[in-house]
Amino acid sequence: MLNRSQSKFLSLTATYALLATGLIFIIFPYIWMVLASLKPSAEIYNRLIPTRITLEHYRMVFSLGSTGSTSPFVRAIFNSLVVSSITTLSVVFFGAITGYALARLRFKGQNLLKNFILFQMLFPIVLFLIPRFLLMIRLGWINTYQGMFSPFMMSAWGTFLFMQFFKTVPQSLIDAARLDGCSELRIVFRIMLPLSKSVTIIVAIFTFMSMWDEFLWYLIVTKDYNLMPLSVLLGLYTRGEYSSYPGIQVAGATLLTLPILALFYFFREYFTKGITMTGVKG
């Protein structure tokens, strides 16, 4: 028979062993991806550990494109950064001011708007795809940056999060700022946002990530390879021109993954906080 502390030790060991095993399943695809992007094409399918490391796929990725022009991949990374960054700034900016007004000001129709924001979150994205596309046609925004980011510039979710957090800031801080001569906008950016660092970061990283990851919408509104964000460009290349070049595909996939992984690494506690706090963004 095992005594109490022995059996406790065993069960703890088993717990760690199980967790570690599971973790291998989670991480294995990443490991495979990075390795595959670094090995000769012939080994991608049936070897895990490469016989030699090569950068040929990355060289290909960065040198593609007609002579003299930048590689479409480089442009795509740039496009992704532009679209994701603009959206992120905009969601934070407008989310903060709208959330502030809803949480701390008084105006006609305030409750209506609050309820409407909750109501908005019930509607599935599928309902908006087609009419927004038609709207982009009407606005002449197909194949433009604004076509890609405009529908996401303000988010009910982000606004709601800011609103919830701003409710907890003591009224006297706002009063003090008003007496100190702050305009309402100043109060938001000099007082509320610095006090809500984690909410701000959470809204920013989740917005950035979802825009970086977005596929369907970009697929719909961009036909011009020069303007495509990386996700669509990679998707189309994988299904088209480079469907028989797995090396390019994995190298592209690695490039698509790494920035978000880096973001994840630097803001890791905010990812967990964001998920546990709100259970947001499925």
Partner: peptide, 20 residues
């Protein structure tokens, strides 16, 4: 007249110092 132009200063019960 808006608060900032009333030439007054206020001290609050919870001090209301800007924490950041």
């Amino acid at each position: 007249v808006v608060p900032k132009d009333r030439n007054i200063a206020m001290v609050f019960q919870n001090y209301a110092l800007y924490p950041h």
